[in-house]
Design a protein around this nucleic acid. Structure first.
Length: 552
DNA sequence: CTGACTTGCGCC
DNA sequence: AAAGGGCGCAAGTCAG
C-alpha cells in the first residue's frame, strides 16, 4: 500500500509526497491548503496510508470538510512509543530533530496556542522522521508486535478526532432538570444554590461554627476538631465513620457540592453545545498507554449525570464494556492456561472459584486486584501465596515486573511500550546523574520509594497491555462501523465515547443489532491480534439503550 | 496579583 | 470498606 506524507510548507501550502511500500518515491505535489480535503477524499478511493506529524494538526479540518480517512501514521505518537520501547535501538532514531519530536504536543481547541501561526511542528521534517521510524521498527526486537502497537496507536488517534468531531449526544434540558431537582434553581454567579445554602446552615448549627465555609478543608477540619471529633482529614469516608448529628448534612453537602463544581451549570455552558458534549481525547496521554482527556472531565463523567446522555431521535446507544479486562489480559500475556480456563467463564472471578483456586468470589477479586496493584497487606496479601501456586505464570509475570521496577529497570507491555525510568536517587546506577532536587534521605524512605516504583511497574505491564487490547478493539470496531452504514461519518454508526474498557456507539436504531455484533466481533479480533491462538476470552456486557444511564 | 501545590473526589 | 495502580478537575492555600 502506498503512503503519502503530508507536510505544511512555509507559505501555508501543503506538500504531498507519495512512495511505495518499499520506500520508492512515486510522486510529489504541492497543494494550496484549501485543496487538501478534496485531494485526500480523492486518494481515499484506493487504499493508502496518510503519514503526518500529528493527527490533531490535520484530521479535524478534514472531518470538518466531510472527509474521513481509513488509516494513517501519526509520527508524534509513534515517536513517543519508539523512544521508550526497550525493543528499539535508540541510535536509529537519532537526528537533529529528535528533541523537537520529543517535545511535540497535541493541539486541542481548548489550547489553540501556536496553531496555526507559529507551530513547532512546522520546523520538523516528517519525511526524515518517517524514514527513521521505519528503520527503527524494522531493526527492532519484535517488529510484528511493535508494528501492531504503532498502527493501533495511530488508529486510536483517528478515533479520538472523530469522537470530538461527532460529540456525545447530550440533552442539556435533561441535565438542567436534574440539577434543579437536586440543587434548586440556578443561582446568580458567586452564590450557592438554595439547597447547598440550607445544608451549609445546618452544618454551621450542628458544629457550632457560625460563618464556617464547608468548602474550606482547613476551616472544616478545625470546626470538626473543635466539636470534639477526632479526625485528621475531611474525606467523606472518614466522616462516615463518625457518630455526630451534623455528619449526614455534611456528607450531603459534599456530594451535591461536587456535582455542582464538576458537572453543574458551568460545565453545561462550557462543554455542551448543539446537543453534544465535546471533549478532547488524548491517545497515549498516560504513560501506560491509556488515553487521557482534556476538557470537561470526559474520563470521569459521573453516573449521576449520565441520564442526560441521550441518543438522537431514531438513534440508539450501543454501550459495551469488557468484564474484568485486566485479569484476562494478564492471563493472555503470561500464557497462564489455568487462569485462561477461569477466564472462559463470563465472570472470571467466579471461574476461579469453580476451579477450586479460592473459596469465594470476593477472595478472587481482592486477590487479583492485589496481584495487579501491589496490595500486600490484609486480605489481598493473604491470598497471594494461593494464587501464586494456582496461577504461577500470571502471578509470576506481575511479581517479576515488580522486582524489575524495584531494581530500577524498565519493563514493557506485550506489544513493547516501555515504562519510564525511575527518577530519584534510590534508583541511581553507575553513570547516571543524581537528581539534585530529590535527596537520598534515610534508607527507609529509599526503600519505600523503591517499593512504590515496583507497584507502578507491576501495574504498568497489565494496565498497559490492557490499553493495547482496547486500542485494537477500537481500531477494528471503527472499521466495522464504517462498513455498516453509508454517507458521512455522522450519518453512520460511530463511536462517541471510550473509557479504558468501555465504548459507546451512536447508531441509527435499525442498525443496533449489527453494531452489537460488530462490537463483539471486534473484541474477538483484538484478542486474536494480541494473543494469537492462545485461548483467552473477552466477554462483553452490551446494552442497546436510549439513555446512557440505562446501560447495565 | 499569579502560579504552584494540596485536598478531595469522580472515573477505570 | 479500602487497600494497591492510573488519571482530570475545581477550589482552597500558600509562596513569591
Amino acid at each position: 500500500m502506498n503512503r503519502i506524507v503530508l507536510r505544511r510548507l512555509a507559505d501555508g501550502a501543503v506538500e504531498a509526497r507519495e512512495s511505495t511500500d518499499d520506500g520508492t518515491a512515486v510522486a510529489a505535489s504541492r497543494l494550496p491548503a484549501d485543496q487538501v480535503p478534496a485531494f485526500v477524499r480523492d486518494r481515499e478511493r484506493e487504499p493508502v496510508r496518510w503519514v503526518w506529524d500529528d493527527t490533531t494538526r490535520w484530521y479535524p479540518q478534514l472531518l470538518d470538510a466531510g472527509v474521513r480517512v481509513e488509516r494513517c501514521t501519526d509520527l508524534r505518537l509513534a515517536h513517543a512509543v519508539l523512544r521508550r520501547s526497550p525493543f528499539v535501538d535508540q541510535a536509529l532514531l537519532a537526528g537533529d530533530d529528535v528533541d523537537g519530536w520529543d517535545a511535540l504536543q497535541p493541539v486541542t481547541a481548548a489550547d489553540p496556542a501556536l496553531f496555526p501561526l507559529e507551530d513547532p511542528a512546522d520546523r520538523l521534517d516528517p519525511v526524515a522522521e518517517h524514514d527513521r521510524q521505519r528503520a527503527a521498527l524494522a531493526a527492532s526486537r519484535a517488529p510484528g508486535r511493535l508494528g501492531l502497537l504503532l498502527a493501533a496507536e495511530s488508529s486510536g488517534a483517528l478515533v479520538a478526532a472523530e469522537m470530538t468531531f461527532a460529540g456525545l449526544p447530550w440533552r442539556a434540558d435533561v441535565h438542567e432538570r436534574l440539577l434543579t431537582g437536586l440543587l434548586g434553581p440556578r443561582p446568580a454567579p458567586g452564590n450557592r444554590p438554595a439547597v447547598l445554602e440550607r445544608l451549609a446552615g445546618e452544618i454551621r448549627t450542628a458544629f457550632g461554627a457560625p460563618g464556617l465555609n464547608p468548602d474550606s478543608p482547613g476551616a472544616l477540619l478545625q470546626a470538626l476538631r473543635a466539636a470534639g471529633l477526632p479526625v485528621s482529614d475531611t474525606r467523606s469516608w472518614t466522616l462516615e465513620q463518625l457518630e455526630h448529628p451534623g455528619v449526614p448534612a455534611l456528607l450531603e453537602y459534599k456530594k451535591l457540592s461536587r456535582l455542582l463544581q464538576a458537572n453543574g451549570w458551568n460545565w453545561l455552558d462550557t462543554w455542551v453545545r448543539d446537543g453534544r458534549f465535546r471533549s478532547y481525547f488524548l491517545p497515549g496521554g498516560v504513560v501506560t498507554g491509556r488515553w487521557a482527556s482534556n476538557g470537561g472531565g470526559a474520563l470521569s463523567v459521573p453516573t449521576q449525570v449520565r441520564p442526560a446522555g441521550v441518543a438522537d431521535e431514531g438513534w440508539r446507544f450501543v454501550v459495551a464494556d469488557v468484564a474484568q479486562l485486566e485479569p484476562r489480559v494478564l492471563a493472555g500475556m503470561s500464557a497462564d492456561t489455568a487462569m485462561a480456563e477461569a477466564a472462559r467463564s463470563t465472570d472470571l472471578y467466579q471461574g476461579m472459584v469453580a476451579s477450586g483456586a479460592v473459596a469465594t468470589r470476593a477472595e478472587a477479586k481482592v486477590g487479583m486486584l492485589g496481584a495487579m496493584y501491589g496490595g500486600t497487606r490484609g486480605e489481598s496479601g493473604r491470598m497471594m501465596p494461593r494464587l501464586a501456586r494456582r496461577y504461577p505464570r500470571a502471578i509470576g509475570l506481575v511479581e517479576d515486573a515488580a522486582r524489575a521496577g524495584e531494581r530500577g529497570e524498565v519493563v514493557h507491555t506485550l506489544l513493547g511500550r516501555g515504562s519510564p525510568g525511575p527518577s530519584g536517587s534510590w534508583a541511581d546506577r553507575p553513570g547516571e546523574l543524581d537528581e539534585p532536587d530529590e535527596p537520598a534521605g534515610p534508607p527507609e524512605d529509599r526503600d519505600r520509594r523503591r517499593r512504590a516504583w515496583g507497584r507502578f511497574t507491576r501495574n504498568f505491564v497489565v494496565q498497559g497491555t490492557g490499553a493495547e487490547w482496547a486500542l485494537c478493539w477500537l481500531a477494528d470496531l471503527r472499521n466495522r462501523l464504517w462498513r455498516l452504514g453509508s454517507g458521512t461519518l455522522a450519518e453512520r454508526p460511530h463511536l462517541v465515547f471510550f473509557l479504558h474498557d468501555e465504548v459507546v456507539v451512536h447508531t441509527p436504531e435499525h442498525l443496533a443489532d449489527e453494531v452489537t455484533d460488530a462490537v463483539r466481533k471486534a473484541a474477538v479480533e483484538a484478542g486474536r491480534l494480541l494473543f494469537g491462538s492462545f485461548p483467552v476470552d473477552f466477554p462483553l456486557d452490551v446494552s442497546v439503550v436510549g439513555s446512557w444511564a440505562d446501560a447495565d
